[in-house]
Design a protein around this nucleic acid. Structure first.
Lengths: 257, 257
DNA sequence: CGTAGCCTACTGGTCCGACCAGTGCACTAG
DNA sequence: CTAGTGCACTGGTCGGACCAGTAGGCTACG
């Protein structure tokens, strides 16, 4: 009874085919970052389409963060190294459109950072450990230099941990979510009246986390990292959302009430 | 000496201005999902640009998953509800370009799913619990129906847990990463010789997870969820990557060797 | 009177040709 | 040999044109 199964014909736009081809060329390595695409006028010849179509394809590729074009450049569009920009953009727009709360973002960071520390404690190399130490050292120095330097060193520490986790996806997500969170609270953090005390406490917490990572105690490192994150941001999270964050804290078995 | 500080002029392309305006209109709620944009020919009047420029802007908006246009539609482009499509696309392209391994993806799922269960155990409502039970029930029924039905029910269970976590970001990331992983191993899972045994074991694991969630034992639920994920996928992960996955398993304090 | 079918007025997709403002490089004049 | 100029490109924008769809009104037939 069932003859040949016909599939609904998906009408494919010309510019989509171009996007596909270029995308595949990049993913397959035929085009590597830094290389240039032919000029739009060349491409219209190669693809046998008009320049408008080529341009629409390039717009899509550009929106996805794969290429960049600059007017007047004697070469064509430049193939970009992967950057999490596109990822970050869609996640940031998600944060606005879906109405992600600061609480959810911080909670997600607690999850990611905790896991990163857990993994880092078991997989870190000596060099990565040194990076973390150096970052904390810079945090200490930055207490007197001001918030920006401190924040940069703080970021460097968390990045080092994320790298040590050995999971690029964790690394990227940590980066993306952190930049969104910082964008939301940076001004408030910078203006905190008791800023210096905050910094010193944060440094102490980071030292504890580092010690756990050095000792290879993953669960402890994870717990401390979550606690550190909570302490640092809880004040900016609406009280109603804090219980959900604390649900991530009392990790070891279950703490009886 | 320093006169008025001149900022470098950032030349803004016309189509970018259009993207900005429409994007903002959507984020501010002035345009809500389901509504239609004016036709391209209308827009070129409203923005005082040519149709090419309007179209390039629409391409970008479309690439970001904000609108969709269909030829022949008597209305203009449709404003889409947020979907994780764009997010998924950039993450999928990331997976290819950055060469994310299956191991890293599964590891990330273990992290997310574990955390989702931890949170769900403490925050789930009775209704969400019922959803999870229903999903497992469908998994049982699907053992005889085949892999597709089973997989769909499995997905429904994990989605229910993610929803119960109360964190939309976790929910979305779970969805995105899962679809990438399934895309990589779906055929191998479907063709597994001992498929039925696999399914039954998976159901038993899910039941244990559900029990822990029902009892409100977050850490246990998280540990079981990670273990379930590991058991289900470890066979498809290269042996060299498995130790990194197992680093997420022996969670409770630390298991002495 | 009801409906099946056509016709029209739209839509987006594609093409073409043109012009502008930048950029880099070769060539030239000092 | 160097400083300056011009040319030959680039991408960005414009306007007009045509096509293939779609939806909905209109007509003509039953």
């Amino acid at each position: 009874m069932s003859g040949p199964r016909f599939e609904p014909v998906r009408t494919v736009r010309a510019y989509e085919r171009i996007v596909e081809q270029v995308e595949q060329a990049i993913e397959s390595g035929a085009l590597s970052p830094g290389q240039r695409l032919p000029s739009e006028r060349d491409l219209m010849g190669q693809f046998s389409v008009s320049r408008s179509t080529v341009r629409e394809a390039l717009r899509v590729l550009q929106a996805r963060g794969l290429v960049r074009s600059r007017p007047g450049d004697p070469n064509g569009a430049e193939v970009l190294p992967f950057s999490s920009d596109a990822l970050q953009k869609s996640m940031a727009s998600l944060a606005r459109v879906e109405g992600l709360s600061l609480g959810e973002l911080v909670q997600f960071r607690m999850v990611l950072d905790g896991s990163a520390n857990l993994l880092a404690a078991r997989l870190r190399t000596a060099g990565q450990l040194a990076e973390m130490e150096a970052a904390i050292e810079r945090m200490r120095a930055a207490v007197t230099e001001g918030y920006d330097a401190f924040s940069a060193a703080d970021v460097a520490f968390h990045d080092a941990v994320a790298r040590a986790s050995g999971n690029k996806l964790i690394q990227i997500c940590v980066e993306v979510v952190r930049s969104i969170v910082l964008g939301l609270v940076a001004d408030r953090l910078a203006d905190a009246p008791d800023r210096e005390a905050l910094m010193r406490r944060s440094i102490r917490h980071h030292e504890e986390v580092l010690a756990a990572v050095r000792d290879g105690d993953g669960p402890l490192a994870a717990r401390l990292a979550r606690q550190t994150m909570y302490d640092y941001y809880a004040g900016y999270v609406p009280a109603a959302e804090r219980p959900a964050l604390r649900a991530l804290l009392d990790q070891p078995p279950t703490v009886p009430e």
